[in-house]
C-alpha cells in the first residue's frame, strides 16, 4: 500500500504538456503544463469554472485534448485501459449507485478494476474502515447522509489501491465533521506516499494538504510552487492592523515583529492584529479577483 521510498518524489506520476481544450469558442484549458511527482500531493486551486474539472477529465481520459499530451506514470496516455488501471478518481459529482449498499458499490467498482476473491473482499473491508463506514456497509447508499456519500466516493477511488489519485473537489457540500474526516483520509494517504492531484477552490485545503499548488484561472495556470514560495512571491506583505480609538490603521510590512517592536519603543502600541498573506492574497494579486468571486 505504501509507495516505496525510492520512488517518492522522483518518478513523474502525471505529466500534462501544453494541454488545450475548448468547447466551441470557450477555452476551458489553455496550454496547461504540469508534472506531479510520485508521492506528491499537488493542489490545483482556482475558482469555479477555472478549468480544474476539465483538467481532471483530460488527465483520466474522459475528454480528449485538442492539443498537448497526457502521460501517466511514464506508461502512456489514459486512452489505454492498462494505464487507466493506475488511476483512482473521486469525481466532483457523486458517482455511486444509490440502490446498492456501500459494500456492494465498492465490490462492483473493485471488480471492474480487475480485483476478485479474497483480495477484493479484503480491500473492500479496508476501504470501508478507511472512510469510517464499516458500520453502514450494508445500508443502501440512498440512506447515507451527504457526508457519508462523499466519504464513500473517496473509498471507491482508493479501493483498488491505485498509485495515482485524482480527487476533484472531494469536500464540496459536506458537513464539517465529514470534511475533517476526509482531510484525515488524505493526510493518511499522503503519509503512505500516495500521489494525489487535489482540486479545490478552498485555499485552506490547499494550504493544509498540498506539497505544491498550481493556481489556475480561466483555463490558464498562473503560478505553481510550494505554498510558502507562492505566498512569498505573490502574496504581498504582511499587515499590522492597528485599532486606534475605534479607527483601523493598516501598516504593511516585510517584518511584522520589527514593526511591533518599533511601535512599542515609541510607547504608542494600541490593540492590533496581524494579517499575513495567504493563497487568497496570492490569487487576488495574480488575478485581481477573489477566489470565490
Amino acid at each position: 500500500m505504501t509507495v516505496p521510498a525510492t520512488q517518492s518524489h522522483r518518478d513523474t506520476m502525471l505529466r500534462l504538456s501544453d494541454v488545450r481544450k475548448s468547447y466551441g469558442k470557450t477555452v476551458a484549458v489553455d496550454g496547461l503544463s504540469l508534472q506531479i511527482a510520485a508521492g506528491e500531493v499537488f493542489g490545483l486551486l482556482g475558482p469555479n469554472g477555472a478549468g480544474k474539472s476539465t483538467t481532471v477529465a483530460l488527465a483520466v481520459g474522459l475528454l480528449e485534448a485538442d492539443r498537448g499530451t497526457v502521460e501517466i506514470a511514464g506508461a502512456g496516455g489514459p486512452a489505454d485501459p492498462a494505464v487507466r488501471a493506475k488511476l483512482g478518481v473521486a469525481p466532483q459529482a457523486l458517482a455511486l449507485y444509490e440502490d446498492l449498499s456501500g459494500a456492494e458499490n465498492l465490490r462492483f467498482f473493485g471488480t471492474l478494476q480487475g480485483m476478485a476473491g479474497s483480495a477484493l473482499a479484503e480491500r473492500v473491508r479496508w476501504a470501508l474502515e478507511f472512510v469510517g463506514l464499516t458500520a453502514r456497509a450494508r445500508d443502501r447508499v440512498s440512506a447515507y447522509s451527504g457526508g457519508m456519500k462523499r466519504r464513500l466516493n473517496l473509498a471507491v477511488a482508493v479501493v483498488h489501491d491505485p498509485p495515482l489519485l485524482l480527487l476533484d473537489e472531494p469536500t464540496v457540500g459536506v458537513d464539517p465533521q465529514s470534511r475533517n474526516a476526509i482531510f484525515g483520509n488524505i493526510e493518511t494517504l499522503r503519509r503512505q506516499g500516495r500521489t494525489i492531484l487535489y482540486t479545490t477552490h478552498y485555499m485552506e485545503e490547499a494550504e493544509r494538504l498540498c506539497n505544491r499548488v498550481g493556481i489556475i484561472d480561466q483555463g490558464t495556470l498562473l503560478a505553481l510552487d510550494t505554498v510558502e514560495r507562492l505566498i512569498a512571491a505573490h502574496g504581498g506583505r504582511s499587515a499590522l492592523v492597528l485599532d486606534e480609538n475605534g479607527t483601523e490603521r493598516r501598516i504593511e510590512t516585510e517584518d511584522p515583529a520589527a514593526e511591533v517592536a518599533k511601535l512599542a519603543r515609541r510607547g504608542s502600541l494600541p490593540r492590533f492584529r496581524l494579517e499575513q498573506p495567504d493563497l487568497e492574497a496570492v490569487f487576488l494579486n495574480l488575478t485581481g479577483r477573489h477566489l470565490r468571486d
Partner: peptide, 10 residues
C-alpha cells in the same frame, strides 16, 4: 455520474 466511473475503469 456513474458512467464517468465506468469509463474511467480499465
Amino acid at each position: 455520474g456513474t458512467l464517468v466511473r465506468l469509463r474511467i475503469a480499465p
